[in-house]
Every structure is written in structure tokens, then in C-alpha cells.
Computed example of a mutant assay.
Amino acid sequence: MPVIPIDSLDDPRVESYRNLKLKNLQRGGPYFIAEGKKVVERLLESDFETHSVFISRKRLEEWEGKVPADVPLYVADQSVMSALVGFDFHVGVVGCGVRRPSAPLEELLPRDAQRLTVVACPNCDNPENMGAIVRIGAAFGIDALLLGKGCCDPFGRRVIRVSMGATFSLPIFETDYLLEDLRRLKQDWNFQIAATVLDTDSELLETARRPARFGVVMGNEDAGLDQAWTEFCDRKLTIPMCRGTDSLNVAVASGIILHHFTRASADL
């Protein structure tokens, strides 16, 4: 498809990009936004459908050969583009991808796999934390991220930006019935599920070992995990801390925990 000039903020072809600072695309809608050079490149390389790419005119020579012929490539002056997206968009590259429903657990987690690792978040409602957990989960090779209905949109613009496009490669399973789905993993997949808590009576991470099929439940940044979750899980884990530190950012904690449990020496 040829390059398509955009001269007006009212052009309906770029409606998805309009005023991104003040809005997110609807979670139930058909599209999501990828922002920045590296993230848009990763969208194009992924198996998600790219609806369109929108660039500033100064980026045309660089991007004209990168965008497939069947993907609309919109081009505008930098001033028009910044006014459209709602902020001074100096990186000059943004893309629109097509959402798709979560694949069923049976597709994400093969029953015959010898080793499986999942992270579950019942109520991670902070986009920066969510994006960091996605990126960390992808880096440490987890098999899926399971998100409950209390979580923010994993395909929100800020989440995708913080994840640096890892959202496109990490299997993400969104569910309104996270507790029931984890129970299925325990019963049908033989998973062991661990809760992460701030409790000195819990198992210390530094000496903890894992079975072949293992899941970690991470709590909310402010409230952690409620009693129903800790009672459901098979074990409770805590990260030892010094100097009176009573908690860590949930994304930082997930990185520490996943680094420990994805090492071969952490296996039973």
C-alpha cells in the first residue's frame, strides 16, 4: 500500500491515534497502540496483525521499507502528529495492532510438557507494574502470565510501552475466574501454586525449591494478596529484607522471584 499523507486532525483514518494522552482504546475494542520505534518493530515482527503505522514525515525514509505493503503507512508533519496524539511525540513512530482473545489454557500450557512456569496476578492495576512484569516474565522464560479481572489492560498503551513489546511474545491469559483456572491447573496439570507474602513465618525464597510445574501468585502493589488467595495456595514465599524494609515494588519482587525459580538449581 502506498504512503498515505495525513493533513488534518479530523481524518477518520487515524481515529485510533487521536489524543492518546487523554484516552486509552477501549479494552473491549478491536485495537491497541504500540508506541516508539522498537515497540512498533516488534509489533510488525510478531504474529499480531498490524492495522496501520503512523509516522512523522522525517521518519519516512527509514520506515517506508519496513512496513509491509498491505499495512497502511500514514505520514504527517511532526506538528500535526503531535497535535493528533495529544503530546509532543518526539519519537515519531506509532502503530495500531489488532486485539485477539486469549487462547485457552490447553493451548498455552500443554499437558505433556515436563516443565511449566506461570505467574498469576489477581489484581495488578498499575500499568507500569504490569508492563514490567510482562517484560520480566518474558525475559525469564515463563510459559504464561495469568491475569484476573482486577488487573489493568495488558494491551494498554503504557503497559505495552513499559514491556518494550514483550506483550506481543509472552502468552497472556485474561480471565474473570482466575481462582477457578488455577484450581484447574492444580487438579488437571499437577501444578503447585505459591503465594508471595510479607510474612516472616513463610518459606524464605533463598532456600525455596520448585517442582516441574509451578505457579507464583503476585499481589497488588498496595494490598498484597488477601486471605482467600493465601489459603488457596499450596505454600507461602517471602523475600528476606534488611534495614526495616517492609516491601518491594511488585515488579521488582517478581524479577527476584523468577530469577530464583527459573535457575536449574531451584528444581527439586
Rank of each mutant, 00 (worst) to 15 (best):
P72W: 04
C124L: 15
V80M: 08
P122A: 00
P127K: 11
M81V: 06
L44W: 02
Q78D: 14
G95N: 05
V91L: 11
L108C: 12
V98Q: 08
G86W: 03
G95V: 02
W63L: 05
S79A: 15
S52E: 04
S46E: 09
E128M: 13
E64L: 00
A69G: 10
A113V: 01
K37R: 15
I55N: 09
L73Y: 13
E62R: 12
D125K: 14
I55K: 05
A76E: 08
V94R: 03
L60G: 07
A83W: 05
G95A: 08
A34W: 11
P127W: 10
S102Y: 12
S56R: 11
P122Q: 00
A76N: 07
R57C: 01
F32Q: 03
E107H: 10
V53E: 02
L84R: 02
V94E: 02
V118T: 14
F32L: 07
D112L: 04
G95C: 06
E41R: 15
L116I: 11
V93L: 11
D70A: 10
A113H: 05
D88S: 12
L116V: 11
L73N: 07
V67G: 01
N126C: 07
L108E: 04
W63G: 05
V53D: 04
E106H: 14
L84A: 03
L84Q: 06
W63I: 05
K58R: 10
L105A: 09
E35D: 14
C121I: 00
C124G: 06
